[in-house]
Design a protein around this nucleic acid. Structure first.
Lengths: 196, 196
DNA sequence: CGATTTTTTGAATCATATCAACGTACGTGG
DNA sequence: CCACGTACGTTGATATGATTCAAAAAATCG
């Protein structure tokens, strides 16, 4: 259950066997069926979820009813509405499962206690969010400086597995373009592919 | 020189007078004249800069030569090309001064040593980047879900001082729209303002 | 298999970009 | 302190990329 988690943790900090055992106590395991919600708008986001298995998305729904996907999460990634988690204010986003999932949940109090009990874990969380920040900056840079097709190509190049694993209209939503536009630009790209 | 810095730090963690003294040693002071570069594309970003006074921007330049502003920084904020800083790979962005600046610079080795010497500072950096991440998510959400005028209005609402302090074409660049479009939508908004 | 979801395609429309010109403000050196 | 040159903001005309709406085709699910 925790194999993948500690694999990821140990990429950043080295935990002893004893520390790993201790660490487990702060997490709770949760399974989620496809389409189930982990978080709904208006609720406070109580947990940061480490994805052991499966895939999830976080998204907002506008007044008109259209969804905008803010984030995907797959095995080894972490997902939460961090603003709500930190401030305990109601979330403005939803999180649901794209596939059946196994998650490791950590609530705020446990996160604080864990960081105190095992200072290396504070370093882990720091490095983790630092990576997430850098990745988000890349996405933001793309959003303001690239055209629709360039954004799509960057996504395919950076995260090929995302494109394989989630429906195309969700990719469109994630990129901030309409599904029709994505369909059309994919058709165009198929014609003009480079064959190296 | 360090007043603002410790004011900001103490919003997140409480440092004793002795810790503050110790802390200072890891930072170096740097002044920058308007238009001077702190970082140029191709260089490794050696420092994270705390802005004690002045204003800066971080931006990329495309092959066609157009600038895209990724980030502004004012008094009390922090700026760096974090990807380059972490990985020591060449930066893809520029940082320059929009006004004469006073900065506190921290290099990577000093940051690591500082976090070891004063563990509270590790917590400070963690909370700091957590905030930055949440703020960037808000901007990203706006980028994929709002129209040009909604993005502008959100910016005005969230950071009124930015709009007052930087030239309009830089705001446009930051929002990912053309300066002409921003000029026009501002004109429209002037007509249809709400008068509360 | 039928039902639902997803993707594709077409046509019309809309938002924004682009290109060009003009007026204004700014600050810099003479 | 003035004059010049550069920056900046505005406006108009046109072009273009992307959206929207509608419908059909294709894929997926139970």
């Amino acid at each position: 259950m925790f194999d993948l988690f500690f694999e990821k943790v140990n990429e950043k900090v080295q935990l002893t066997a004893a520390e790993q055992e201790e660490c487990k106590q702060y997490y709770t395991v949760k399974k989620l069926r496809k389409r189930q919600f982990l978080l709904q708008e208006g609720e406070v986001c109580k947990y940061v979820a480490f994805v052991n298995k499966g895939a999830l998305r976080r998204y907002t729904v506008s007044e008109k009813g259209d969804e905008h996907i803010l984030q995907f999460a797959f095995e080894g990634w972490t997902i939460a509405d961090l603003y709500s988690f930190i401030t305990a204010e109601p979330s403005t986003s939803y999180i649901d499962a794209l596939e059946d999932c196994e998650l490791l949940l950590l609530n705020k109090q446990n996160q604080d206690e864990l960081m105190n009990a095992i200072p290396k874990m504070q370093r882990y969380f720091f490095l983790n969010i630092q990576n997430a920040y850098v990745a988000l900056q890349r996405r933001m840079t793309a959003a303001i400086s690239l055209t629709a097709d360039e954004k799509y190509l960057q996504l395919v190049k950076t995260y090929p597995h995302i494109v394989q694993r989630v429906p195309q209209h969700m990719i469109a939503s994630y990129l901030g373009i309409s599904p029709e536009t994505l369909s059309r630009l994919r058709k165009q790209l198929k014609g003009g592919e480079q064959e190296s």
